[in-house]
Nucleic acid binder design. Sequence first.
DNA 1: CGCGACGTTGATTTGCCTCAACGATTGTGG
DNA 2: CCACAATCGTTGAGGCAAATCAACGTCGCG
Lengths: 194, 194
Amino acid sequence: MPAGKLLSHIKNLTLLSADEEKQIEDVLEKKTIRKRQFLLHEHQIAKVAAFVISGCLRSYSIDRNGFEHILQFAPENWWVTDMYSFISGKESYLNVDALVDTEVLILSREDQQHLCGKISQLEHYFRVITEKALVSTQQRLMDNLSTTARQRYEKFCGTYPGLINTLPQKLIASYIGITPEFLSKIRGEFLREN
Amino acid sequence: MPAGKLLSHIKNLTLLSADEEKQIEDVLEKKTIRKRQFLLHEHQIAKVAAFVISGCLRSYSIDRNGFEHILQFAPENWWVTDMYSFISGKESYLNVDALVDTEVLILSREDQQHLCGKISQLEHYFRVITEKALVSTQQRLMDNLSTTARQRYEKFCGTYPGLINTLPQKLIASYIGITPEFLSKIRGEFLREN
DNA sequence: CGCGACGTTGATTTGCCTCAACGATTGTGG
DNA sequence: CCACAATCGTTGAGGCAAATCAACGTCGCG
């Protein structure tokens, strides 16, 4: 039952009847994305969103100078897509690829909209998780406006202790918005203090 | 009929019966917020959100050095609150105040949740506008990670041509994440080029 | 009128970037 | 299973975008 993890995730926030569960399961497609493979390329249309069952994806953009900026890591139990493209139907500006071999459930925007019209608990679920995503993006934005690179790194360590030792530092640097070299220097200081 | 603007806004995205409109109107409270008055102070609990009928609010945080960082301007037809506090019930970290005399409709989280349970079109409305808010916050975050102050200023001018000549430059600087002095210098260059 | 916020401008400082060189680690083809 | 390339992390020298600090003119408002 590959959809089990997602159904549990939904049922943490609301209730579903057995019939509703079945309707949801029926539209989901399980998929494996191998390390370095893409779920979505920029300039494509993001017709689907992915729920991560195991592994880890990331979404990122590439700026005009060729630098990557990571918007989101998506480990177990996270959704990921290019939300802009997903809701507008226009070209995405994000890439989504796998940091390790990853299993996901695929849900198309079309199926999502259709099901949300039929199952009000599902619409509730998506409203609530979108609200949470908004809050965390807002807080990250405010952090970027008000704190130094070092403070952001310390906060990242506190918030994602699990990812620290898994991810290449390159990716952490990209997420907190600095160069890998500068992150290395911050960590240097850091160690020297203890 | 003070709720007219909000009902129109909802009906741009979905359909409402006359009875549903009435239920919504019944829980809304109209309020006037004079220039420099607060809708919400940090460390309070954000029990309500506000929909702006006329005027303009802003939400902002104050960092440990006493500097303000503007998260959002809320002109006509925008919602504003401290989303973090609104959904979690915990202490807010944002302030919301009025830049000019402003008329708003007040909706409590309690009423919102209750009505969304009864009127599925309303839940749909809030899901959709939350998705849009998420997209615009994500794009602003990516801009802050990948562009220079000058590019952000030019983009701001393009995106909010209406606000440029209304707002003190101080506030624009705070929104794009630079000091007022540096914004002044950018504008200096800018003028000298034309 | 006079005070206090605002915008401007210049001198100096600083946080972070750029570029370059070097080991260490990973991974890959033979 | 090894040799070699590619990628990653570290370190240092130098540079640049933006912050800081300070002085000054202007304007709106009590």
